[in-house]
Amino acid sequence: MRLAVIGAGAVGSSVVELAADYGHTVTAYADSQSAAIDAGGIDVDAAFDRKQADGIVGDDDPAAAVEGPYDVLVEATPTTLGDAQPGFGHVETALETDRHVVLANKGPVAERYADVRALERDSAGSVLFEATVGGAMPVLSTIADFDPEQITAVRGVLNGTANFILSRMGAEGLGYEHVLAEAQDMGVAEADPTFDVDGTDAALKGAIVANVLSDGGNEYTLADADVEGIQDIEGSALELAAEDGHTVRLIVEVVDGEVRVGPRLVPEHAPLAPTGTRNIVQLETEHAGRLNISGRGAGGPETASAVLADVGRL
């Protein structure tokens, strides 16, 4: 397949780097300012060198990359809320010209799911978005394989930064601010960790799962989720939980058409209490009990592997 990769962050650049390993050719690569386009396949190393040296990936126009020669548009620009632009516009252009879309950007499917599906219905192209929930973990494809109707609840830890903070606080008895600063030093938390610690990132993933489960029924957005973050959670709360064999985790819960994100008490050794940045999703099935999927929920190559798995499914 010929891929147009839009977005040159950790995920976009990893997709470009790994595409050849999966038998695909990158014919367009764009960041917000520039693009490299070549119908025969771009020079990947040259694009990375230009990005490193000059901050641009090539001399072409990023708008032309979205229009350009490709079979699959990989949308890996940063997630935006509300109208989900510019990501949504890229999805629109690709589908209107009957090409496929693989999303790493959560915005279009978390905030405008019905619009995306409507565009897809009128297009010969399809939209897949495994990478938007749980990074490398095959969450959405497992739900699709099981049939959304057979899934009665989905619960999970879907934000590695929040999980790192809570598990460090619990294990070391350290305060929130201290552990957050440590996480920033280690690169586990971003300089502005707001969306990770206030529950927004986890809630977007919950909304996407709810959209998939409702299978074209109700549409969910961030506004439909009941969200509470972990900011300034008391160290003493984790201590008391531990005395009772429990711990606290930021849990996303999608049950009975409700999306809820918040710190919850879970048994210390339960599957839903992973440590560090690890993610887990627990599917409750109609006939097969609980199914746990755990792994790395973020990271460039990890998320890129989910993107490329989607490309393989097309």
């Binding site: 959670i233 709360a237 429990h246 849990i251 819960e253 918040g262 919850r264 627990q282």
Partner: peptide, 13 residues
């Protein structure tokens, strides 16, 4: 006050 609730009935999940 902040409430940290158990997950699931009885918090046994």
């Amino acid at each position: 006050l902040r409430v940290i609730e158990p997950l699931g009935p009885g918090g046994d999940l």
